[in-house]
């Protein structure tokens, strides 16, 4: 680690709705918090606020086919490639904090379903989402307004955050409530290393969002990181990965995939197959894949940038 060279911090988040979480991470990392803490707190903000539900994030997210909310979340630290994930976790909104707990308080990498919930409760988490298995519907603690909005959303969004601190450490985290009416116990790409996220202090970090059941077949986060390791700029690496993947699934229309990447110099890149993204809460629409970037200046607001679809 070259400590003599002062680096600048960077925070990036998937989709335009990540502006506030990015702001939280930016504030924390500029106050000297670790990148893992900054990632976790940013994800928590969205997980605990129902307004992020329409983006398939947190306690406001859409239920599975049994009417239950099931979360996937993971955190990866580029230092020693530490990794923790929870999948198909019910009952707890701060899934990314449970994922961090798996990373720090077990020697495993991923806990799932009931085992994950038991582990969370043992670790001091409270059940704050009530799922009932009444068959045909949810009676979750959720306002009907947000429920209606989440039903109108057909997109495969998830929140992914990358934080690079000024000491040469990088971390990334992803949280998702998954797609509406998914099968119970279904795990998407979000919490899988190399698919939803990847980080390595020698290279940088990458996050993906989109159609999880498709994304995980191509390990795009790992692919982008390896391309960066071979010397590609983050932008080029993201574009190259999208082109490689869409080439392989030629017969069908390209599935929804959006990638963000940051290298250790703080350069940011993104690429997508998405032509347009509509914010179902504000009603605003963006061309391509909008993502939020904070480029290291304390007090400055995150900017929304857009990546245009690869052709």
């Amino acid at each position: 680690m070259d400590s003599a060279r002062k680096r600048h911090a960077v925070v990036v988040g998937t989709w335009a709705f990540s502006a506030e979480p990015v702001k939280v991470a930016a504030r924390l990392v500029s106050q000297g918090c670790t990148c893992e803490d900054s990632v976790e707190n940013a994800l928590n903000l969205a997980e605990e606020d129902e307004k992020y539900g329409p983006f398939q994030v947190g306690r406001g997210g859409p239920p599975n086919q049994n009417g239950e909310l099931e979360m996937d979340a993971a955190i990866m630290s580029g230092k020693q490639m530490s990794f923790g994930a929870v999948t198909a976790l019910q009952g707890i909104s701060r899934a990314s904090s449970v994922a961090r707990c798996v990373m720090e308080r077990s020697k495993h990498s991923m806990l799932t379903a009931q085992g994950a919930q038991d582990f969370a409760v043992q670790s001091g988490f409270h059940l704050d989402i009530l799922n009932t298995q009444s068959g045909d519907g949810a009676s979750r603690i959720q306002s009907s307004e947000h429920q209606a909005k989440s039903e109108s959303s057909s997109q495969h969004d998830t929140l992914g955050i990358i934080v690079l601190d000024s000491h040469g450490n990088i971390a990334t985290g992803v949280t998702s409530s998954g797609m509406k009416n998914k099968a119970r116990g279904r795990i998407g790409d979000s919490a899988l290393p190399g698919s939803g996220l990847f980080a390595d202090n020698e290279v940088g970090a990458v996050c993906c969002s989109g159609e999880g059941d498709q994304i995980m077949k191509f390990c795009p986060s790992f692919m982008v990181l390896e391309l960066m390791r071979q010397g590609m700029e983050p932008e080029t690496a993201c574009q190259t990965a999208i082109r490689r993947i869409t080439k392989r699934v030629k017969p069908s229309p390209p599935f929804e995939l959006a990638i963000i990447a940051v290298n250790m110099e703080g350069k940011v890149g993104a690429a997508t197959t998405v032509k347009e993204w509509g914010d179902t809460v504000t009603g605003r629409s963006y061309p391509g894949f909008p993502f939020a970037v904070w480029s290291g200046i304390a007090g400055e607001e995150p900017q929304i940038r857009s990546a245009q679809p690869e052709t």
Partner: peptide, 18 residues
Amino acid sequence: HKVPGRIGDSPIVGAGAY
């Protein structure tokens, strides 16, 4: 003696097999 609910590399695409 794994922690209940533990998933390893085997069912993870690209980790267990490709």
